[in-house]
Design a protein around this nucleic acid. Structure first.
Lengths: 159, 159
DNA sequence: AAAACAATTGAATATTATTCTAATAATTAC
DNA sequence: GTAATTATTAGAATAATATTCAATTGTTTT
């Protein structure tokens, strides 16, 4: 993909701010808040989507409601050569794995995993991770409590 | 807050699945997809919100577009006593800090931070973290590349 | 300054959201 | 087990929003 030009003005920032806080805010409301015509807002939002500045809209669901109570981070050392990320892509395919990051210094990855409980984690490690070629070792960190968990970016005030 | 009863049937699961994938899917579309009246869907969605099963709707914004290119994880050891989380709440207030987790075993927290670049990270550590009382030490892990980053939960197929 | 391009408005139409009532289904009480 | 209660749904009517498009205004480019 070619280098994209992100050319955002302060109106775009305002739209992003509103959307980041409530992705279901309707066009008419955004238009009212910004004092513009709905059609103009629609145009801008579409452009933000096309330029892949807004990547997706998602509902944040309470993990407790789906009985997914255990959050863990796992450091994974692999035999992946630098540049190659074969293991990473396999990890990314696992539904319980929410994040996969290639990290500096350790020849490995940091993954974030959400399971039912500790038995679910053990299952995952034994039956899923255990079957992936190239994993040399793992180090697991259990989350006792999550104080904050958001994806919100800091949006500039001025353009 | 009293213990909430989450009583979800397979229709709720389907709604959650749709919403999780695209939070801007409109009522009419959901209704059509599930073969139900829009009013019934609206009723259910409202209930899911009220029961705090759907926590919020957010737009995922491309960090590159806002020039936030560096992602880091920082382990923070503190003098917080078990049960007390004073430092955690201070950390949670920092806009660049997207996540704060109380982790097992280390008397500390794992935080996820998104900054402009490495100088932004240094700034944050020096000027913001450095001013928080009770932080004993930090260990920073830099993310070279993110292969996957989602909040999507695994939603049961059957009720 | 003119031309080319981009963004905005405003109005018209299509579609959706929302409300409400009646009917149905599911639970609970007795 | 039956009646009473409660929750859910459909369907129709209305309010509001989304979307399209032509005309206008604003912005760059040359």
């Amino acid at each position: 993909m070619a280098k994209l030009e992100y050319n955002l003005d302060h109106i775009d920032f305002q739209i992003l701010r509103i959307m980041q806080n409530n992705a279901r805010t309707n066009n008419a409301d955004i238009a009212r808040e910004l004092g513009m015509a709905p059609s103009a807002i629609l145009e801008r939002v579409k452009k933000l989507e096309q330029k892949e500045i807004i990547l997706q809209y998602n509902a944040k669901i309470n993990p407790l409601a789906l009985d997914q109570n255990l959050l863990s981070f796992i450091f994974i050392k692999t035999s992946d050569i630098i540049g190659e990320q074969g293991v990473a892509y396999l990890l990314a395919e696992i539904p319980e794995v929410q994040e996969v990051h290639d990290i500096a210094g350790d020849d490995g990855y940091l993954i974030k995993v959400r399971t039912n409980d500790s038995s679910g984690l053990v299952d995952l490690m034994r039956n899923t991770l255990g079957k992936i070629e190239g994993i040399l070792s793992t180090r697991t960190t259990i989350v006792l409590e999550t104080i904050k968990e958001e994806q919100k970016l800091v949006i500039p005030t001025k353009e």
